[in-house]
Amino acid sequence: MRKTLVYAVPVVVVYGILVGGLFAAMLQPPAKFGRIMSRLPSVTFFLFPFEPMWLMARKGNLKVGDMAPDLALKTADRSAEVSLSSFRGRQPVALVFGSHT
């Protein structure tokens, strides 16, 4: 029993530190997090509860019912600038955030 503890306690402590480290990385800006992940082995996904940690880390501050922050962005063809606030009182807006990869 005592012998098991001698091995189990350090393993649990090290695992806890690694979970904390991964979570801290998830809280970094995307580019920095990406750079960190690119150096970690893919076993990271299986060793840690990646999905729940990610959903928690990337929860964000906006909640349903909050005023949506205004955005003024150019269209990809640069033909126009679109301001989200211009739709207020007129029509709903649907946004799909994403990239190619």
């Binding site: 906006l62 909640k63 349903v64 019912g65 909050d66 005023m67 949506a68 989200l84 606030s85 739709f87 207020r88 009182g89 007129r90 029509q91 709903p92 807006v93 649907a94 946004l95 955030f97």
Partner: peptide, 9 residues
Amino acid sequence: YVIDRSGRV
């Protein structure tokens, strides 16, 4: 995201 007519999430 979907934002309603009043500008809320």
